[in-house]
Each structure stands twice: as C-alpha cells, then as structure tokens.
Nucleic acid binder design. Structure first.
Lengths: 242, 242
DNA sequence: ACAAAAGTGTTCTCCATACACCCATGG
DNA sequence: CCATGGGTGTATGGAGAACACTTTTGT
C-alpha cells in the first residue's frame, strides 16, 4: 500500500510528502563474525545506496524510518536510533537522481522535487540478521548485505552517512547496551564477544570480557549448547532487559 | 540584510527557504553561578520561545544556526552542536503561529507556510555570557537570559527541546570538554567547578575536581588573581585546546 | 591570630587488565 | 590422553572518592 503511494508520487511529483526532507537508514546486521549493512542497487546502474525514503505529511519521523525498515527487511519493532542530520547546501543530486530514474525508464521534469536540495535524517537500525528478508524497492533490483569492509562507493553522501552511523554505534555500544539487538534470542558469550570485536575493531581479552558482560546482570543462562566440537560446551544465554 | 529577507518572506509566503524545516537554538550561558538560556518573547503575547529560524535554500544547516546565533547575540565563531531532530507529525502549530503574527499585526493567509507541519533541528550553543549582546528579532520584543530553573512555559515543543539539549550537554561535558566554551578567556578552577556543578546538578569534591581538570593538560596557568578576599589568591588559567 | 579559600598529599576502594589455572568435550 | 575452547581465580596498576594537611590572603 505504501509502495503504491511512493510509486505514484515519483511519477506525479505532487507528493503528500514533507518537502526537502528524506531519511536514510543504515541497517546493521551481524553474521559469520562480520558486521554487515544492507544496500540497494538501482536498476540498470552501478549505483549503490542506503535504504531511504520520504516522510508522509501525516507520519512521525521515526515511523517513516520504521516503515522503510519493514519494507526492506520484513521486520517490525526494530531497534532504531536517530544519529545525525546531513544538510550541506550542496546536497542536491539532480544528475544522479536523473540517472537513477532513467534506469527505471523515467525522465524527471525539470521542476521535479527529487531534483531539489534535500536534507537527510540519518537513522541506524540493528536487526537480527537471521530474521531479515531483504527486499528491493521499486527503483532497485537488489537489496543485499555487504560486509562493512567491502562496502562499495555509494551515491550522494551515503558513505559519510555510513561512517557517522558507525561512529555513533561504537560510542553507543557500552552505554546503551545496544549490541544485543544484533543477535538472535539466544547466543553464547563468545558470539557477543565477536560482535563487540567487529564493531569496535579491536581484540578483547576473552576472560575479562566474559566477566564484564555477565556482571551487567542482563543475561540469563539457559542451558548448555553441545556444538559437536572437541571442546567444552558453552552456555547459551538470553537477554533480559530489565 | 538577512533580517530583511526574513521580514519580506514572512509577509510574502514565497520564501527561498527550505520548506518544512526549521532550526531551534538552545543558547547556554553561564553567569553568577547559574546556567542560563536565551529566550525570546513575542510581541503583544505571553509566548516565550527558543531563538530559531529557517534555512535559506543556499545555506548549510550549521550556517543557518550560526546566523541565528549571530543575530541574537552579536557573536561569531560560536560553539555549536546539533543534537536532535524533532519531527512528530503533530508538529503543526497553526493557532500559535497565527497568534504570534497577530501580535505583530499580521494575518497569515490560510495557505501560509508557517501553518504547515515543520520538523525542527535542535542545536545547542555555548557562549561567553560576558560577550553576548542579546537582541530580539522582528517578531519579539525581548531577548533575555533566563535561569535554567526559572524557564517559563514555552511555545510549541520548545520545553522538550530544551530538556533534550540539557541532557546532551551533560553527557558531552566530560567527553568533549565542552564546558570551557561557557567561560571567558581566563578563569579560575573554582569557576570551572561551579560551572560543572550547575550543569551536572551535583556537588563535586573540590580537591579531586582540581586534580582531574589540571591532569587533562589543557589549561595553562597564567598568573595569580588578587581578589581582595581574605584568602589565598587563586591562579588564573587559560584554555589551550591542542 | 584567625577565617576562608587555594593547592597538594595520602589512603582506600573499585575496576579494568593480564595471566594463570581448572573443566568439559570429542577425537 | 591430548587439543581446544569455556569458565573462574588471582595479582597488578591506575583512576576516582574521601579526607587531611599546608599555604596564602585580608581583616
């Protein structure tokens, strides 16, 4: 339903959208000991971009972000954090937008709103990788996970936005205990440690990390996990937010 | 000059402004052991508000904030930090805007842009109280300092914006060493401590605070300050950002 | 001499680090 | 029995809290 609205509005350029404002979502996932983000690739181009969208005139900013997230991942109740607004006066990407739309067989009229200057509100989202079902939008032909260290060059200022999101995530990691949102319901201490290590980009001492995390009092020990590996079976924990 | 633009645009409602976006500035000052903020009072009303404004279509967001700050305080090169975007769908304050403009002898046409929904980007600014020359804008008849604990009820959601600014300032205080922007060029350790105490809202132990601040290695001892009081004269320091 | 505030020193505790050691598991 | 990784114990160092002590100023 919302997709229809978007589609129509792209074509008509008479949107019931908040003018000159967009949102961009840096969607983090964690799999295979890699921090990953979700990127779109626009049809018939080499253009990669963060998932984003516009705000309906009757929609909260955060609801717009949640809507985008649901459309791209199929998930609701996603952990979301607004982190910065990008508003340089140069934020007008008319040529790029023209090319993107050309790839979709659309020529934008000269006064189309997409050709104007936009400010973009950055949100980062943390999701359970195993539950996400990435889905492209109307303008793109792929929506896929990319390892953080293999992110291609992105359109607009999206590389900067990603960078800022990552910095914010790093500094939020300990204070807001945000990392658990990237893990499935149950996990081992080792998995948390790998997660922290990839986000922070540094090795942590296993034994100390274990104590630190357990001392937070937010983990509940469930059972032992028999991995089949030739070593002691780790406990499986569940996050219990107070 | 910029004032003329604003004035004209209020009346014409054909602005060369970024639509649906505003900025609001929480301007902090420190005097008399009190943290203060600068508020406007609109003409012929009881409406108090944070200084704010709109963004020219050819202006960076932060430049717009700096312009507002200069217009209200006469100061340039102000310490500025973007802290949040307020974008609830209810952020449409048509009646209040009508009343504000009525106080200025202006009736807004029904389709005037001021009656639309706005998102507002919050900036907080830290300034040297002793250097500021508060000046009202065209719509207000006063621009004055208010003690933080005596802030009146503000229009729109400005009380919430102020609250969020204060929280951000508190958490930035230690990590970004932001407090010194509120002090004049030279100051005593005691003055810094009073500043920290008022911002954080708690008493700090003098001797420990002294060591902590000096151990940062960002203060240069200048001279002794003879206060005329019956006690040891404190040293005067200068901030030396690396 | 005394009060008041500035500056410095000392102790204690807590927490993070580093590292050692034991435990469980499958080959 | 051994290799591997999970879980816990212990010593060390640095930072902050609490408090004592000295120094400097004006009355």
């Amino acid at each position: 339903m919302t997709k229809n609205i978007n589609r129509k509005e792209y074509l008509e350029s008479k949107p019931r959208l908040l003018p000159s404002v967009s949102i961009d979502c840096v969607i983090f996932g964690f799999s295979n000991n890699q921090l990953k983000i979700l990127l779109l690739k626009f049809k018939n181009t080499d253009f990669y971009a963060l998932p984003g969208g516009f705000i309906s005139i009757e929609e909260d900013l955060s609801d717009a972000a949640l809507r985008v997230l649901e459309e791209r991942t199929g998930l609701r109740d996603i952990y979301l954090e607004q982190f910065y607004v990008f508003g340089s006066k140069d934020r007008r990407y008319d040529q790029t937008h023209q090319k993107i739309m050309e790839g979709n067989g659309i020529i934008l009229k000269p006064n189309h709103f997409l050709l104007d200057r936009f400010i973009s509100i950055g949100y980062y989202a943390l999701i359970d990788f195993s539950k996400a079902n990435p889905a492209p939008d109307d303008l793109s032909d792929s929506c896929e996970w990319y390892d953080l260290d293999k992110v291609p060059s992105l359109v607009f200022d999206h590389n900067q936005i990603l960078q800022k999101a990552l910095e914010t995530l790093r500094s939020d990691l300990d204070t807001k205990l945000v990392g658990f949102n990237l893990l499935p319901e149950t996990f081992t201490i080792n998995e948390i440690q790998r997660l922290y290590e990839t986000i922070l980009g540094e090795k942590l001492v296993r034994s100390n990390f274990q104590r630190k995390i357990l001392s937070l009092g937010i983990l509940e020990r469930i059972e032992k996990k028999m991995t089949g590996a030739a070593n002691k079976a780790p406990y499986v924990y569940r996050f219990v937010g107070q």
